[in-house]
Computed example of a mutant assay.
Amino acid sequence: MKIELRYFASVREALGVAQEAVEVPDGVATVGDVRVWLRTRGGAWSETLAEGRALRMACNHTMTDAATRLTDGCEVAFFPPVTGG
């Protein structure tokens, strides 16, 4: 299945990429699975997308959780939680 990935704010800065199109491997079926799979890239990917790290996710422009199922061609976005002052 092919999906579009988008990275925003400090996530984009840490990973050094704003967007990419990827073919996810068999077994990657949810937004949470994508996050786990991307961590296998190691380095900044593992650190930035680490489990327990505050990170927001969206699928097709809708805020979501890790259990949201992927569909072919969907867009998944990762970004830090918004803070104010």
Rank of each mutant, 00 (worst) to 15 (best):
56 R>E: 09
62 T>P: 00
32 G>W: 05
13 E>K: 15
69 R>W: 00
77 A>L: 02
14 A>M: 05
72 D>I: 05
15 L>I: 07
43 G>H: 11
67 A>Q: 14
77 A>C: 09
73 G>W: 01
58 A>M: 13
38 L>M: 14
2 K>G: 05
82 V>W: 11
50 A>K: 15
52 G>H: 08
80 P>G: 04
11 V>G: 01
31 V>A: 00
68 T>K: 14
28 V>S: 13
59 C>G: 08
63 M>I: 12
29 A>K: 11
25 P>S: 14
1 M>L: 07
79 F>V: 12
79 F>W: 14
33 D>Q: 06
64 T>L: 00
14 A>C: 07
21 A>S: 12
2 K>S: 11
8 F>Y: 15
47 E>V: 11
79 F>A: 10
68 T>C: 12
85 G>L: 00
4 E>G: 07
59 C>I: 15
69 R>C: 00
12 R>I: 12
38 L>S: 08
49 L>T: 05
30 T>H: 08
83 T>V: 09
69 R>Y: 04
15 L>Y: 11
15 L>G: 03
8 F>H: 05
32 G>E: 05
36 V>T: 11
68 T>G: 03
21 A>M: 08
71 T>Q: 05
14 A>N: 15
42 G>T: 11
5 L>M: 08
59 C>K: 12
51 E>S: 08
62 T>L: 14
77 A>H: 06
55 L>W: 02
12 R>A: 15
77 A>R: 09
15 L>S: 06
16 G>V: 08
17 V>F: 12
65 D>P: 02
4 E>P: 00
82 V>M: 11
49 L>N: 06
13 E>V: 12
62 T>S: 14
8 F>A: 10
28 V>G: 11
65 D>I: 00
53 R>T: 06
6 R>S: 06
17 V>T: 13
16 G>T: 08
76 V>S: 10
10 S>E: 15
66 A>W: 07
61 H>R: 14
68 T>F: 04
66 A>L: 09
85 G>W: 02
22 V>Y: 03
20 E>R: 08
75 E>W: 02
72 D>C: 04
70 L>W: 02
78 F>L: 10
22 V>E: 01
11 V>Q: 01
35 R>L: 10
23 E>Q: 09
4 E>W: 05
39 R>A: 12
20 E>Q: 13
55 L>N: 01
76 V>Y: 02
69 R>M: 10
37 W>T: 06
31 V>K: 00
76 V>L: 04
29 A>T: 10
35 R>H: 07
84 G>Q: 01
44 A>S: 14
5 L>S: 07
3 I>G: 01
68 T>I: 08
43 G>R: 13
76 V>C: 07
83 T>L: 02
70 L>E: 00
45 W>C: 10
13 E>C: 13
83 T>C: 09
70 L>M: 04
40 T>E: 15
60 N>E: 10
13 E>L: 14
56 R>T: 09
67 A>M: 03
26 D>K: 13
80 P>Q: 15
67 A>S: 15
29 A>D: 13
9 A>P: 09
81 P>E: 03
37 W>V: 04
63 M>R: 13
39 R>I: 11
1 M>V: 13
76 V>I: 13
83 T>F: 01
24 V>W: 10
9 A>Y: 09
71 T>K: 09
80 P>L: 04
76 V>G: 02
51 E>N: 04
53 R>I: 05
30 T>W: 02
36 V>H: 05
54 A>Q: 11
73 G>V: 00
44 A>P: 03
14 A>P: 04
10 S>L: 09
11 V>N: 02
15 L>T: 03
